[in-house]
Design a protein around this nucleic acid. Sequence first.
DNA 1: ATTACTATTTGATAGTTGTCAAACAATAAA
DNA 2: TTTATTGTTTGACAACTATCAAATAGTAAT
Lengths: 106, 106
Amino acid sequence: MRQLPHPATEDIQLTEVLRALADPVRLELVRKLGDGIELACSTAGDDLDVHKSTLSHHYRTLRESGVTHTRIDGRQRLLSLRRDDLDARFPGLLDSIITAADRVGV
Amino acid sequence: MRQLPHPATEDIQLTEVLRALADPVRLELVRKLGDGIELACSTAGDDLDVHKSTLSHHYRTLRESGVTHTRIDGRQRLLSLRRDDLDARFPGLLDSIITAADRVGV
DNA sequence: ATTACTATTTGATAGTTGTCAAACAATAAA
DNA sequence: TTTATTGTTTGACAACTATCAAATAGTAAT
């Protein structure tokens, strides 16, 4: 597979985004994905005590909800936040959620 | 029962709030609860095509997550947003979510 | 080619969720 | 004291979710 399916910006659903971020593991992953930064799956989940197949499931959920973008590079998958797309569709949402997460540490 | 249990402000969990708002029915209920407004359960859910027991379940989820406050008045339960508490704990969060919901109409 | 690496997929499982229907509880009105 | 009103609770059920383990797939290195 050369490229993974991503929802178009205008197809990103609010409830899907909230559902994706309502999980502690996924919220932590998003926190680690600082703006403009790409992380390999192995890096993103390295300090989380979760099985790799479980992480793969979370990556998929994040991607399909429109929260993250996944780029294939060799045998790695590079994750990044879809910051611009999310800001365009839901202004301020991602920021307030990440700020809140940093604040309470989850 | 004279009063219903509500989580203290400092016990409101981010993932719980996000999970509560990640449901279309509950998000719509929150949208209808404008700031400082109290709505009876009957009023809040009158135009939603959902069984009353299902609504009752959603009211409970919203209350237990810390999103809403429920006051008992006679045979009615009056719902209101815990705007101040949520703003204190997660600044800007509720606003961005409600704005986003209004924007896309969910 | 063989081996190592990175990640996904499939299968299984236990727990959670949204929903309806029916029964119940509490209060107000008659 | 009946009757009506307003919600909750319980039970049942189908769908979904997070998780691990094992198998699989694709790529890079040897």
